[in-house]
Structure formats: structure tokens, C-alpha cells
């Protein structure tokens, strides 16, 4: 999906253009549908156990959840700046912004590990109750997507350092960026749903 040889998404006669490769958008859509099912499963499971979900939601660290929202949004923003830099042929800014975006992702993982350490340290596991089962599996599923996003950003950074991207070709960069923004988009729903809504 970050192969620069991949077929670019077709341009429509109206001049409307889909950034990146068409394939990545189908992949993103499939991922988003999987998360939609997961989010709905959480919401409907909660409907059957409102008191229990509300009680245990109080044990989650909302500050760390909000901090992670800041990190993912800012990481996404840096990656947009990398794409914009590519269109302006500002090569050093592409790699720099990708690195900054990657660091935000790294910050997210560190915060999440701190959060998990506190929960697991308190003896909480998937089998503790339905709420924690959802909390751990949903956030961990998302965690894995952050890791994949960072692997993609690493590849983009290496390619950017080689001078692959510019106004002549930014498809690979745009495809990877789109995936990274999806990770952000999913957290924007996950955070209020699991940490705040009651």
C-alpha cells in the first residue's frame, strides 16, 4: 500500500481527486467497519449492564485518555503537514513532520502502557468483568493499529529521506497518511464512548 509503483486513484472528470491509492481506501473502510461492529457491541452490552459499566468506567484514567487524544490529533496534524510539504517540494519538511508524527504515536503507546500497567497491576484482566473485557480488547485492538501506523510512518520516513516524495509523486505518502488519520478517527469515537459517556 505504500509501494510507489501502485496504481494511483483515478481522477474524475470534475477534477475531484482521491488522495493516495484506491486500495488503501478499501482497506481503511474495512477496518472502520470492523471497529463499528466493536463500538456497537460495546454500546449494546452496556445497555444490558448500565450500572456495572458506569461503576467500572469510573476506574479509567480520563486524563490519560484525553492526553492520548491530543497526541493522536497532533500526530495526524504533523502528517498532514508532511503531505503538504511534499506538494510544495519542501523535502526536509516531509521527513521532519513524519518524524514528529511518529513521536506523537510513540507518546501514545507510552501513555497507554502506563495505563495498562496500572490496571494489570491492580489485578484487572479480560476475565474480571464484561466492562474490562471490552475496555482491554477495544483499546488493545486500537493499540495494534497505532503500532501498524507507526510502522507505516517509519517506511514513509525512510522513503522521504531518500527523496522519493515530491509534487511529482506523493501517492505512497498520501496512502500511508490516510491510514494514520484513520487511527486518529477511531480514537476520536473510542475515547468518549469508553471513557466519558455514561
Amino acid at each position: 500500500m505504500i509501494n510507489t509503483q501502485a496504481v494511483p486513484a483515478p481522477e474524475t472528470p470534475s477534477g475531484r481527486r482521491l488522495p493516495g491509492d484506491l486500495a488503501i481506501w478499501f482497506f481503511i473502510l474495512a477496518e472502520m467497519l470492523a471497529f463499528a461492529v466493536f463500538f456497537a457491541a460495546y454500546a449494546f452490552a452496556r445497555a444490558k449492564n448500565v450500572e456495572m459499566f458506569n461503576t467500572y468506567q469510573h476506574t479509567l484514567d480520563r486524563n490519560l485518555g484525553a492526553l492520548n487524544t491530543f497526541l493522536l490529533i497532533t500526530g495526524s496534524w504533523f502528517v498532514v503537514l508532511a503531505v503538504q510539504a511534499a506538494h510544495k517540494d519542501n523535502r526536509p519538511a516531509i521527513a521532519r513532520n513524519l518524524l514528529l508524527g511518529w513521536l506523537c504515536g510513540g507518546g501514545f503507546l507510552v501513555v497507554k502502557v502506563i495505563e495498562y500497567a496500572a490496571k494489570f497491576g491492580a489485578g484487572i484482566s479480560m476475565s474480571t468483568n464484561t466492562f474490562y473485557m471490552f475496555y482491554i480488547s477495544l483499546t488493545f485492538f486500537h493499540f495494534m493499529h497505532v503500532i501498524l501506523g507507526m510502522v507505516i510512518l517509519t517506511i514513509l520516513w525512510v522513503q522521504a529521506r531518500k527523496g522519493v516524495y515530491g509534487s511529482h509523486d506523493a501517492h505512497g505518502l498520501e496512502s500511508g497518511a490516510a491510514y494514520w488519520h484513520m487511527v486518529d478517527l477511531l480514537w476520536i469515537v473510542l475515547f468518549p464512548l469508553v471513557y466519558v459517556m455514561r
Binding site: R16, R17, P19, V80, E174, H181, M182, D184, L185
Partner: peptide, 11 residues
């Protein structure tokens, strides 16, 4: 995020 980060406004 969809319109300004993913840049789908003009997609």
C-alpha cells in the same frame, strides 16, 4: 479529520 486531514473535501 475526514475532510481536512484525510483531505476528502475535494475527493
Amino acid at each position: 479529520v475526514i475532510l481536512d486531514f484525510m483531505e476528502l473535501r475535494e475527493a
